[in-house]
Design a protein around this nucleic acid. Structure first.
Length: 103
DNA sequence: ATTTTGACTTAAG
DNA sequence: GCTTAAGCCAAAA
């Protein structure tokens, strides 16, 4: 299953409130590894199951929607975020408005 | 145990 | 604003 690192990442991902998003770097920072943004992505790739962890609420540092292993990929991810009320700026998420500030 | 790969990020051209 | 390069961390081969 999971290492302490991935478990921590999942735990924080589940804390992201509906309608808000967090960046990979942000979760990495919360997990105590501010430079492990990449590892966060790797962890997410292993859990493309929505019910377990809302990995669709995790976006890149500039609000871009990168990878998604479930559904129709990015399209599904964007659709879910829009449905949750996340504000979009064209193809990217408007972090100024929708970034989770639970630090 | 070592190498490769990737859903990252920041800096520089 | 977009492309390239380098740095970082963890999982998979």
């Amino acid at each position: 299953m999971g290492t302490a690192f991935t478990e921590t990442i999942y735990a924080f991902a589940r804390k992201i409130p509906k309608g808000k998003v967090a960046t990979y770097g942000q979760l990495a920072q919360l997990a105590g590894r501010p430079a492990a943004a990449r590892a966060v992505g790797s962890a997410m790739r292993c859990n493309p199951d929505i019910p377990k962890t809302p990995c669709h609420r995790v976006v890149a540092s500039d609000g871009s929607l990168t990878g998604y292993s479930a559904g129709q990929g990015i399209s599904t991810k964007r659709a879910m975020l829009l449905d949750e009320g996340v504000t979009f700026k064209g193809t990217k998420v408007d972090l100024k408005v929708s970034q989770w500030k639970g630090i």
